[in-house]
Design a protein around this nucleic acid. Sequence first.
DNA 1: ATGTGTGAATTACTTCACAGCG
DNA 2: CGCTGTGAAGTAATTCACACAT
Lengths: 216, 216
Amino acid sequence: MDQNAPETNDIPDVVVRRLPIYARTLDYLLTEGKSSVSSQELGERINVTAAQIRKDLSWFGEFGKQGIGYDVEKLLGHINRILGLTVNWPVVLVGLVYLGQAIARYAGFREKGLHIVALFDADPTKAGTILNGLPIQGDEEIPRTVATHGVKLAIVAVPATKAQEVVDQLIAAGVRGILNYAPIIVQAPEGVWVRHIDPVSLLHSMTYYLAREQAT
Amino acid sequence: MDQNAPETNDIPDVVVRRLPIYARTLDYLLTEGKSSVSSQELGERINVTAAQIRKDLSWFGEFGKQGIGYDVEKLLGHINRILGLTVNWPVVLVGLVYLGQAIARYAGFREKGLHIVALFDADPTKAGTILNGLPIQGDEEIPRTVATHGVKLAIVAVPATKAQEVVDQLIAAGVRGILNYAPIIVQAPEGVWVRHIDPVSLLHSMTYYLAREQAT
DNA sequence: ATGTGTGAATTACTTCACAGCG
DNA sequence: CGCTGTGAAGTAATTCACACAT
């Protein structure tokens, strides 16, 4: 439902999905001046058991010191390397109505190795407009631009009705990972990863519990 | 890491999280004019096995007809009832920089029973500004407004450094479910649900696989 | 003492496979 | 037949608990 995990034996996807959270938290610990952290302490910050953190990390090596814990900076470096974040990743963004514009302006991507290098929107009246330093291009430019930048990652923030079409174009152009904000599960072939962001579904999964309580 | 699931024995949270996706897809099927659907067909749209859908639904009752499948409209009604979506849920939104503004303007919440009833931002120069028909209030108004509307759900789109503080205020005011867009895992007491949206982490979980391939 | 790394045990989730109904 | 609902079987993920290193 969420992603198509092609033959990536070895490490479970749940583990991979937790690594970025560990990295983010180590980053915060670093800015707080902490140089060392135990799995216990790290776990408390993110509601994960200490054992889980240790087991997750053990898939990749031995990064801790018995009796001490983990060196924050070193562990962060290890995780960043594991996630392929020693290089910057060019990313394209498709769909520039409100949400897309907000994404284009968000500094958090660039700070974390994700550089938005091109913006696309199907609306021809937007073409040429500069947004956060980048010109908006028409969707027909996707193939050329994706190819010239060697872009592997895309963010899709178009209406649900257009999402599959845009995703197909992106994949045809060479994109291999897609972050989809449209409220629809898009299909992708083997070898392409897709992650969905669906705030309405997340809220609905909470109304389930809240509705239940009121009845009690 | 993602949510604190207090004593909600019975139905697994993974199941609850899939229900909104089923509902959304049934909705699309309905607009496409389909009146009946099999678990197989529904599953193909969202990359879930037919058995999983049947098992998930069986937690709540028997909604299908052997040899036929499910009546789209009826099943949608059942799921909406299960999710507590027979009523509208008032929601407040805190944080109105770019992302928050985009959220405030997004029509998709209201269409799905989630009515944004109040907007808050800590920036006093924003106070009083009308956004999408609602006045922006200062954070100090949170307790009164949340109480008068009986708000149980909140969306948080403030910077990471402010997120925990805002969440604490919201919970103190009576909020029981929080959708957090800030890139930090916020803490909440038993009985409060939290869901996180973290695009950077999702992208990083894909760079992991992409980096691996290039090496191959 | 303290806290990691890890097999073993446990718990949770998914898929199988088929009886039974329309 | 065709497709649901569901126990049973099979996988996967998490937690336990402890040997061992500092």
